[in-house]
Design a protein around this nucleic acid. Structure first.
Length: 351
DNA sequence: CGACGTGTAAC
DNA sequence: CCTTTTACACGTCG
């Protein structure tokens, strides 16, 4: 029987800001991604629990958050700092399972089969507290799905263990939206079928789900609702790297688009160097003033050069704007994919 | 089958 | 009013 541990750093960005400035402790702290197009444009990245009590949540427009809580403290996200701390924490976790699966900057899975889950989880929490002064929430279960959902049930600073025979009861009465992989669209589709809880979904005919959502998705929904998840814990290879930003103002001017695209390309190139990857596919991304998304991509001979990103990106942008003269752009992005580890990457030690 | 474009989801 | 970054499924086309 597998034992999987999921760890989630609590309100990560806001907690780090409180650690950097202890005067912020116990205050409503809102870490923001300012887009730069106007004073308060942008979205909330993370809200402290005190800010959440004011109704402020991640993903919310900053302007709206300010209406809810004038008194809250709004800080710009310092992602470089957060990344550095995250790396140190992932290093700690790797000592417990070298095949750690990092899911995001503040989340990871460990396969802890054949160990004492409770003791191990407490040890990990203590170590992160002691070395970084941070709290986290941990969930443990027979698979990744249950571990992940368990870590979310008791926050912050939680520890939740769900045993095999408890899975059904754990899931049964939760709204479908709470099931991992069910977002707003799927929730709506399921609700329209009268499927409100995960228990309802578990009983729903599998063939109908497959018919509605497609083979893989239909099966996943059925299995997840029944607490079944065979996905292994495995280190993730980066599949793609990208940079996205808002234009200062909406535009269809090729030159304005190209200017921003150049700076995004440069930043993306630096990232490919740091990761030590080569790429074959370059994608230009566009989001128009009605928030409709588009992409144009091209596959080239394997490359690691800035020029390849810049030139291909510009061509794709030009073509896109020429084909769509009526579209007004709001945000653009550049992405590389089809990645390979480049031969001679500087080892971390040389850095 | 690979390349390309879109949609959904998670953080 | 609406950020950033990543993953992956699926349909289509040649």
């Amino acid at each position: 029987m597998r034992q999987i541990l999921h760890i989630d750093l609590d309100y990560f960005y806001a907690q780090l800001e409180m650690k950097r400035n202890p005067k912020l402790r116990k205050k409503p702290v809102v870490v923001c991604m300012f887009s730069g197009r106007s004073e308060d444009s942008g979205a909330v990245a993370t809200a402290s629990y005190e800010a959440r009590e004011l109704g402020i949540h991640a993903g919310m427009p900053i302007i709206q958050a300010k209406r809810l809580g004038k008194e809250a403290i709004f800080l710009p996200a310092d992602r470089e700092h957060y990344s550095r701390v995250s790396e140190r924490i992932m290093d700690i976790l790797q000592e417990y399972d070298e095949d750690l699966e990092q899911v995001s900057i503040d989340e990871a899975y460990l396969d802890i089969s054949n160990r004492n889950p409770g003791n191990l989880a407490k040890e990990i929490k203590d170590k992160i507290k002691q070395q970084e002064g941070l709290t986290c929430s941990i969930g443990i279960g027979p698979n990744k799905l249950i571990a992940k959902m368990a870590s979310g049930t008791n926050k912050p600073d939680g520890l939740t263990i769900v045993k095999e025979n408890e899975i059904r009861g754990f899931l049964k009465d939760l709204p479908v939206k709470k099931l991992f992989s069910v977002g707003p669209k799927t929730e709506k589709e399921l609700n329209d079928l009268g499927v409100k809880t995960i228990g309802d979904l578990a009983k729903f005919p599998k063939e109908k789900l497959v018919q509605m959502f497609g083979g893989k998705r239909g099966r996943d929904l059925h299995n997840y609702a029944n607490g079944i998840d065979e996905r292994p814990v495995e280190p993730r290879e980066k599949q793609q790297l990208s940079r996205l930003a808002s234009l200062k103002e909406d535009t269809d001017d090729v030159d304005k688009v190209k200017d921003l695209l150049r700076s995004l390309s440069k930043s993306l190139y630096e990232r490919t160097k740091k990761e030590g990857v080569t790429f074959k596919t370059i994608t230009f991304h566009a989001i128009d003033n009605r928030l409709q998304m588009y992409s144009r991509s091209r596959t080239i001979d394997e490359s690691k050069d800035l020029k390849a990103i810049e030139k291909t990106g510009e061509k794709l942008a030009e073509e896109f704007l020429k084909e769509n003269p009526d579209i007004i752009l709001r945000r653009i992005g550049i992405r590389v994919s089809n990645l390979s580890r480049s031969r001679k990457q500087k080892s971390l030690g040389e850095f």
